[in-house]
Each structure stands twice: as structure tokens, then as C-alpha cells.
Design a protein around this nucleic acid. Structure first.
Lengths: 195, 195
DNA sequence: GTCTATAATGTGATAGAC
DNA sequence: GTCTATCACATTATAGAC
């Protein structure tokens, strides 16, 4: 790569990342071709390799951007500094849902492209996923729960439900904020009157 | 296809389906080659096309098998005829988790190969998914819930949490039955003492 | 029903001019 | 930094012998 870091936004390199993220998110890694990506930014296929040494390194760069953005989004989420720990969990979850449902192709790539599908960088992709999830987990594990509750399973349930929403979410239905609040409330409040 | 239906188990055709399911589940559709599948059953690549007209029709056949097996599994799940509706939900969920976590490559394909990744049969794959989920939903929607609860979101939360477990599940950890019970209990019982 | 041979295509990637 | 030209390769799929 030509410049180490801190290239200004909307540089040629960023355009490539954006185009790659868009296609990876919509169709998957293998289904996306270098030709499509380069075409989107008005470049010829060969030129891409001046910026990235290979297709999988391009995916890795998208993943890195994605993790960075999602971490930022969580830290800045409205309500993340609330005194109520359940509010903080809800804020974290809504920020996550916002990212993967509405806005960023980068976030969607994190969810839909599985590390195993790209052996050359599988370990790096996994590490990036773990880094994000650890941060996410730290907000959820701050809750004080009844002693018989498996906190890890609770967190995985929440993350799983959220990530899967990418499959059924439609923009004209409930908002990410509504969905997030509903998921958290389903955990907080009892559904079974006899329990 | 040579025979319309009802070929006996372990016919050559079934071996092909098994091999295909195994690879699709482990690596994805695109990442799997006809060579690998044919090799597994001691056949040459070209011979596969006597049994299936194309790779995506082979995937479709795997999907169909998968849906059939998962539906069967739900109907026969222990506890599915319980008088307690929450027990029936748990039985349904555990049957689902059993299928996608432990046993069947066919079930895993249903979860991990997204219809959009195979445009030629995307609509058929979606229809098969819907058929299964409708059956699943009928068991869950039989619950009587508090009026302020969105039953659809509750169901989607459960399915999402279950499907996502494929990402983090390890055979030496909690069993599918334990995970399923935990998920259902997290919904039934309140986590927040002040609520 | 399977094999041999091969067609047809699309792909990631490279070398070197500009 | 981009383009031109192209390589090298893997893949799905087909035609026809056995």
C-alpha cells in the first residue's frame, strides 16, 4: 500500500474500500469480482492491485474499517453513559442494530462474510470479530443478574437475535431502536404469567 | 434426474446429496467444487451431470432434503405433545438446535447458504426456508402472551439466537438441549429484579 | 451409469508502457 | 497512479465412447 495511514477521506483508496464493502455486503466475497469493484470507481481491474496486493487483503481492510466504525458507534451511542445498566445494554444493542441494518455496508460485511470462507485471512478476520465482540460483551456483562442465569448465554442470545435480524429486517417495518428495545424488554420482563 | 421419487436410501444419488451437503455446510456454495463432491463418492466430475443438471439444482435438492428432515424432526421431538405450551416451544427449539448444531449437514446448509448467493434458484431456496419457518412459527405462536408483547419479534428473537449459535457452538460445551432450555427460560423469567 | 476428453467461460493476478 | 494486454488457472458443463 502506498501510504501507511491517515489518508484523507474520499481518497481513491477509500472509494475502493466503499465499493468493495458494498458488493461484499450484498452478495458475499466469492460472488464479488475485482472487475465489479474497479468498475464502480472508474478504474480498470489491474489498477486495483496498485492499492491492494490481493482480493483477500481488500476484504481484510474492509473488515478493519468495519470494526473501527462499529466500535466508535458503540462508544458514542446515546444513552451509553446512563446510570441504569439496562439502559446501557439497550444503547449498545441499538447502536449495533443501527450499524448492521441501516447504514454501513462495512458492518454488514462483518456479519455476512464468514471468516472460514476466506482461508488466507481467516485468522485475522476472526480476531477482528473477537475484538468487537469483547467490547460489546463488556457492556452487557456489567449487568447484575440472578445467580442462576448464564450470563454468557444471555449475551450470545442477544447478539444472535440482533445479527439474524439482517435476514428479516425491512426498512418500512420497525426501526432498529424499536427492535433493540423490544429484545431487551423480552429479557427483562417475564413472558410467562405462571413463573 | 433418472428416477422421479422414492429411490431407496444410500443410492448413488443419495451419496451425492450427502457429499454435497457436507461441503456446502462446511465451506459454502461457491467454495465447493463439483470435483470435490464427485471425488467423495468415487465419481468423476462429468458423471455428476447424469444425476443433476447443474450445481445449483444440486444445492436446491440439498435444501429440499434439509427442510423435509427438519420438519420431521420437529414433529417427532420429545415433548412436542406436552400440555404445557412453553414445553412445546422448548421442544421445538431444541429440535431445531439439535439439527443445526450436531447432526445434519443438510440443516446446516439451510442456515449458512444464503439464497441471494445463488441467484438461479434464490426464489426456490427462499420458499423452502419460509415453509420451514412457518411450521416453526405455528408452535411458538400458540403461546398466550401479555398483550403488550410483539409475538413476531419474540419468535424472530428465538430463531435468530438459535441460528446464530452455529457461529459459537462447540461440541464440548453446553448441549443443544441445555442451550434451548436456557434461551426459553431467559424469555419466560424476568432478568431485571426491579421490573 | 460412468468415464474420457475437452469446450467455454470467468477469474485473480502480473508486466511493463505511459 | 492508471492503463493495456495478457497470463495462468480453476471452474461448470458438454459430447460421445464404453
Amino acid at each position: 500500500m502506498p501510504q501507511a495511514k491517515q489518508q484523507k477521506r474520499n481518497s481513491r483508496l477509500d472509494q475502493l474500500l466503499d465499493a468493495a464493502a458494498s458488493h461484499f455486503a450484498a452478495k458475499g466475497y466469492r460472488e464479488t469480482t475485482i472487475r465489479e469493484i474497479s468498475g464502480d470507481v472508474g478504474m480498470l481491474p489491474g489498477s486495483v492491485y496498485y492499492h491492494f496486493p490481493s482480493k483477500h487483503e481488500l476484504l481484510l481492510a474492509v473488515y478493519e474499517q468495519g470494526v473501527g466504525r462499529m466500535l466508535q458507534r458503540i462508544e458514542k451511542a446515546p444513552g451509553i453513559d446512563s446510570n441504569d445498566p439496562w439502559k446501557r445494554v439497550e444503547a449498545t444493542l441499538v447502536a449495533h442494530l443501527d450499524a448492521i441494518l441501516d447504514q454501513s455496508d462495512y458492518a454488514r460485511v462483518l456479519i455476512s462474510v464468514r471468516p472460514d470462507q476466506v482461508p488466507e485471512v481467516a485468522d485475522d478476520l476472526k480476531a477482528l470479530r473477537d475484538r468487537y465482540e469483547a467490547r460489546f460483551a463488556s457492556h452487557i456483562d456489567a449487568l447484575t443478574l440472578p445467580p442462576d442465569v448464564d450470563q454468557r448465554l444471555m449475551r450470545l442470545m442477544l447478539i444472535g437475535a440482533a445479527n439474524w435480524s439482517q435476514i428479516w429486517y425491512r426498512p418500512n417495518g420497525q426501526s432498529p431502536a424499536e427492535i433493540g428495545k423490544a429484545f431487551v424488554d423480552l429479557l427483562r420482563k417475564p413472558l410467562d404469567p405462571s413463573s
